[in-house]
Amino acid sequence: MVPQSWYLVLSAALFTLGVAGFAVRRNSLVMFMSVELMLNAANVAFVACARAHEPVRGTVYALFVIAVAASEVAVGLALVLALFRLKRTVNADEIRELRA
């Protein structure tokens, strides 16, 4: 039996990877994947805690996150596609529309 703390360490590592990836990479698709990584890190933590404490509620949360992540991908990829059509690039540095 793997102790719970290991799962949490894995989750934290994945999350840190996600954050780092989001902060460092310039390709918006990769940044997108990093966001997914963070969401799944959270899912790992949820499921691990659910097994240790309260099986039903934690698992349901994980399912919710997956659902939200799916819909977010639908919107997000559509945005990236639209941006690519407009700008011919997916490099986040070259897209600076949101500014004062």
Partner: peptide
């Protein structure tokens, strides 16, 4: 405050994190 809003997604991400 305006200089913070420069349109660079990574800057926003930095502040957010």
């Amino acid at each position: 405050v305006r200089i913070l809003q420069n349109g660079v997604v990574h800057a926003y991400a930095f502040w957010f994190i």
